[in-house]
Structure formats: structure tokens, C-alpha cells
Amino acid sequence: MSRRAPLSENKKAERKLGWLLCAPAALVMVLVTAYPIIYSVWLSLQRFDLRFPDQREFIGLENYVTVLSNEFWWTAFGVTMLITVVTVAVELVLGMGLALVMHRTLVGRGIVRTAALIPYGIVTVVAAFSWRYAWTPGTGYLANLFDGSAPLTERASSLAIIMLAEIWKTTPFMALLLMAGLALVPEDLLKAASTDGATAWQRFTKVMLPVMKPAILVALLFRTLDAFRVFDNIFVLTNGGNETSSVSMLAYNNLIRGLNLGIGSTMSVLIFITVAIIAFVFVKLFGTAAPGSDDGERR
């Protein structure tokens, strides 16, 4: 919208009411999130190691220089990015397949949905342990399948297993979000496409996907933000060994194990900034696809 008409009195009043209605929720959010965020930023600007509490002092951006010039940070960042991109991409494809199956299933829809959601319902740490035991040579059924090798002791295979565990766990969630999107596609539209001469694949790509776009973007946003903060699976499966640490693992190790509040907070702030950037990019993408926008995708 290039030109914006001045708001009428009515519109203004409506806006005011909108803000008033949001206020309580916004207030609670500020209390529970803004304080820790601001406190982290404050900590990240100090040299603050609990092992040497008397050396605490304000050092500006020095911690950021330390972290950003550290190769461990960048390795962890690369690992996190890799896990995020691969798992979200695979989950999108698998989740879409699963959503289509669940959408089409006419009998026992409830049971199929419940069954598909079980992995998501299991506590991540518990699931991670079961994966770890499965891949442990000698006792694990999966490790035995591969001649008793020890995949969790090598970097590439460890990462693969971490990603597998992540995908196994969150694909159902993706599928559920996508299924909500599928429900948005009117039956008549697909019938029209059929008579217009579209094959099943063309109906999917040219009719279903464009109509579902907002739902797909929501699903991708949720999952990307989630995946970027991957922690539990790595913690249980490799504990960050063989350069499989994610940025969250690294922050945890510095904060809790290393007791270095300054460096740990710096990492947390950097993770926060990255996540904010990802969210911003997605929201920009939404802008042109959201229902009711100028593009006229609303019906």
C-alpha cells in the first residue's frame, strides 16, 4: 500500500481498543522475557567468571570479539545451521506426505492422527536415550544391524543420528500444522483443476501449494526457530563430542559447566539475535502471502 488514507475517528478508537486488549498479555510477556533478555545483555558486556568473581568488570564488546573470533563457536554455528536446514527441509517433505495421507484417510482418522503424533508426545530426553541405546554397539538393535560399529563415536554418523532423532520426533508436528493448511484448500478448487486437465502432481504444485503457502510458512517458521535451538538430542546422544556441539550446547557448557557468565551470556545473546533475524526474514516472506494482504489472496 503506497498511499495510506488518514484514519477516521472510528478507526482510531478501534486501534486504541486493540492496544488496550493486548496490554495485559504484553505486560506479562515483558515481565517474563524482557527482564532476562536485558539481564543477559548486561552480563554479556562484563568479564564475569564465577571462578574468579573478583575480576568482574565492564568490558564493553570484548566478549563478543572473543566469541566471534573463536573457531569452536563457528564450528558449533555451522553444525547448528546444518542441523536446522537439513532437518527442517526433510521434515517439510515428510510432514507434507504425512499430512496428505492423514487428510485423505477417511476411516479411523482419529486413530491415524494419534498414532502419528506419538513421537512428538514422547519427552525428547527419553526418546534421545532410546536412540542412544539403539546405536550402542553390543546392546543396541540398530548398531547390531550395522555389524556392531559405533556410529556415535564418529562425527558424520553422529550428526546423521542426531538429525534422524530430530526428524523422527518433530515430523508429526510439522504434519499437523500442514494438515491445517490442507483444510484451507477448497474441494471445488481441486475438482476444477482436475477438469481443467491437471494431473495429480500439477494439482498439488499449482493449486494446493499456493493456497497453503501461509500455513507452510508458519510451519517452517516454528520449526526453524525450534531446530536452531537444538539441545536435548545432542546432549544425550554425544554430549557435544566429536565437534557435534550446537550453539545452545556451547552456551550451556560455558554458562553452567564453565561458570563463565560473561561468555555464556554473550553466546545466548548471539543465539537470540540469530533467531530474531530468522523470524524477521520469515515475517517479511509472510508479508506477501498473509491472508488479506494487498496481493489479494483472501477469499
Binding site: P186, D188, L189, K191, A192, A193, S194, T195, D196, G197, A198, T199, K206, V207, P210, V211, K213, G296, E297, R298, R299
Partner: peptide, 30 residues
């Protein structure tokens, strides 16, 4: 035969226009 092999055109009560396409693209689709 599948609908696409019958060479028939259908008009629906809901119109079933593709929301992401312009009028021109809608008509050009088949």
C-alpha cells in the same frame, strides 16, 4: 477415464477460481 482425458469443462457454484492467479492466468490455466 480421468477428468483430464474427457475434455469437458465444469463451472461450480463456488466459482472455484484459483486465488493466487490473476483473471488472465485463471482463464489461461487449462
Amino acid at each position: 477415464k480421468a477428468p483430464r482425458d474427457r475434455d469437458i469443462a465444469m463451472v461450480f457454484q463456488s466459482y472455484a477460481l484459483y486465488p493466487n492467479m490473476t483473471v488472465r492466468e485463471n482463464m489461461a490455466f487449462p
